[in-house]
Design a protein around this nucleic acid. Structure first.
Length: 510
RNA sequence: GGGCCGUUAGCUCAGCUGGUAGAGCAGCAGACUCUUAAUCUGCGGGUCGCAGGUUCGAUCCCUGCACGGCUCACCA
């Protein structure tokens, strides 16, 4: 093989590996180059540190001040233009790219010859002075260049990049290297999460960690993941919500708490659902759902400004204005407006069932029609007629009590609750209540959920006896809210799929 | 779970109702001291996702499977 003649040494190692791993020609060439470097005592994997003084963005931003001054940079070789006794290298670091200029005169012929063992994808350190090329490109003229890590696999194509979604999600490191907008999205993700913490911390919220493992997965309607403790010989669930633990913190007197972290729901996977996802739940004593509405719109607008510089964002070609105040609409009014149905005039479940039949709502309902309450049917009508129209941020207020087992009833109407959901682009973003703190009513609601579980609804809320006990100790009137953090990040980064805002989304093994 | 689509070189993609595959980038050899999708000359690189079937012959047609994408359903 001609490459073996061209690059001496290390053939035994290469042959052994190729037998077990079926290396491509390009992988073999790079291993041979590595073996040569190691044989010469220049093993890139023996490098320990590199002191770098600047990142690529610093050099471009502060060019005036840095011109002709020495800098030390490091990064990945993204392209290599060898023109004989000189070469241009595009070096990529955390912030972007900067060009490096190498020539034999500055480096010496012997050192310059080392570039024969460099490839696109390698990680190098460069020391040199900052200058502008004749074509105007801000560059670093290398006086010293050290191979810090050898890439044994070639990078995807430099012009078209990496497109295959399967490789992008499975091998996110390649996606991050090749697609700058991916790096940008995940930097924004950090800014958004930081902004949320800042916003709450500055309002005297305490951030707490509640259990992920527990014997009861309650606080939401969802199927949990099941696991097992060897030490306790006990079946445990991964949490589906943090609600019941955070309310215990309120009972204990913390007054304002939140938990931002992963929840796990053993359900379908699509562009809006990943089995593990980030959720923030927050609870504020002596507040109600109207206070939560104000908190929601202000906090989201704050996060948007911190991450994107504006409260107006473009999402999939539509401008979304997150500036408060957001539109407020009751569920009954939303169904009246978009579905031309007046549930305010409906008195009985039977009347509602007639409407459901007339409007073909059976498909939207989980239960048999005769078991459906007016509340179930109102919710179905809302989902069918109204939800998709809620493009600009909208609070839908006052949900039926039947579908809100942890929520305080509306004064004067026990069939409805003080609950809202925030919708943007037709999708739910937040869910909030005036929290139910009456232990006797809460017990009845749990008992109702247990009956539904016995009837086969394995998403009905699990009964949590200690939570009832905590309410018996006394929870002050409290407003609480949950926000799907990944979904918020989707809006603020214009991401089509939730997989584009989760670094390592859940995938089947190949 | 249903439907549609995809899987060909390291990457991005071609491949004609069937005759065992091409391009660009990347790689290798050579030339070139201001290039930037560098350029020029030459060369190598394939289990056509996997398993069956039809056929003289399958990347191509059929069946099944795997993985992925979109979508509907389920689901916050």
């Amino acid at each position: 093989m001609s490459q073996e003649k061209a690059v001496a040494g290390g053939d035994d190692i290469v042959d052994e590996e190729s037998a077990s791993r079926a290396l491509s020609e390009q992988q073999l060439v790079r291993r041979q180059k590595l073996a040569k470097l190691q044989a010469e005592g220049r093993d890139p994997f023996a490098q320990l540190t590199w002191n770098h003084s600047h990142h690529s963005a610093d050099i471009k931003r502060d060019f005036e001040a840095l011109e002709n001054k020495d800098v030390s940079i490091a990064g990945r070789v993204m392209s290599f233009r060898d023109i004989g006794k000189a070469a241009f290298v595009d070096l990529q670091d955390r912030d972007g790219r900067v060009q490096v200029y190498l020539n034999a005169e500055a480096l010496g012929d012997e050192v310059y010859a080392h570039i024969k063992t460099w490839d696109v994808g390698d990680i190098v350190g460069v020391e040199g002075f900052v200058f502008r090329t004749r074509r105007g490109e801000i560059s670093v003229h290398a006086k010293r260049m050290v191979l810090l890590t050898k890439a044994l696999e070639p990078l995807p194509e430099k012009f078209h990049g990496l497109k295959d979604p399967e490789i992008r999600y499975r091998r996110r490191y390649l996606d991050l290297v090749m697609n700058p907008q991916v790096m940008d999205t995940f930097k924004k993700r950090t800014l958004i999460i930081k902004a949320i913490r800042e916003y709450l911390d500055s309002r005297e919220y305490i951030e707490v960690d509640t259990p992920i493992l527990s014997t009861i997965a309650s606080g939401a309607a969802a199927r949990p993941f099941v696991t097992k403790s060897n030490a306790l010989n006990l079946q445990l669930y991964l949490r589906i919500a943090t609600e019941l633990y955070l309310k215990r913190c309120i009972v204990g007197g913390m007054e304002r708490v939140y938990d931002m972290g992963k929840n796990f729901r053993n359900e379908g996977i699509d562009i809006r659902h990943n089995p593990e996802f980030t959720m923030i739940e927050l609870y504020q004593a002596y507040a109600d759902y109207k206070d939560m509405m104000e908190l929601c719109e202000n906090m989201v607008a704050y996060a948007a400004e911190k991450a994107t510089g504006s409260a107006k964002v473009m999402y999939q070609g539509t401008e979304i204005d997150l500036s408060p105040p957001w539109r407020r609409l009751t569920m009954v009014d939303a169904v009246k407006e978009y579905g031309k149905l007046d549930f305010g005039a409906v008195k009985t479940d039977a009347e509602a069932q007639d409407i459901a039949k007339k409007h073909g709502l059976e498909h939207e309902l989980k239960k048999k029609l005769k078991d459906c309450t007016k509340g179930d049917i109102l919710n179905a009508a809302f989902e069918k007629y109204a939800e998709e129209h809620l493009i600009q941020p909208t609070f839908i207020m006052d949900y039926p009590a039947d579908i809100s087992p942890l929520t305080k009833q509306k004064p004067g109407d026990p069939t409805m609750t003080e609950r809202f959901e925030a919708f943007i682009y037709g999708r739910e973003l937040a869910n909030a209540y005036s929290e139910l703190n009456d232990p006797i009513v809460q017990l009845e609601r749990f008992q109702q959920q247990s009956r539904e579980r016995e009837l086969g609804d394995d998403e009905a809320y699990m009964f949590d006896e200690d939570f009832i006990s905590s309410l018996e100790v006394g929870m002050p009137p409290t407003g609480g809210m949950g926000i799907g953090v990944d979904r918020l990040i989707m809006f603020l980064t214009d991401a089509y799929s939730i997989r584009d805002v989760i670094l390592f989304p859940t995938m089947k093994p190949v």
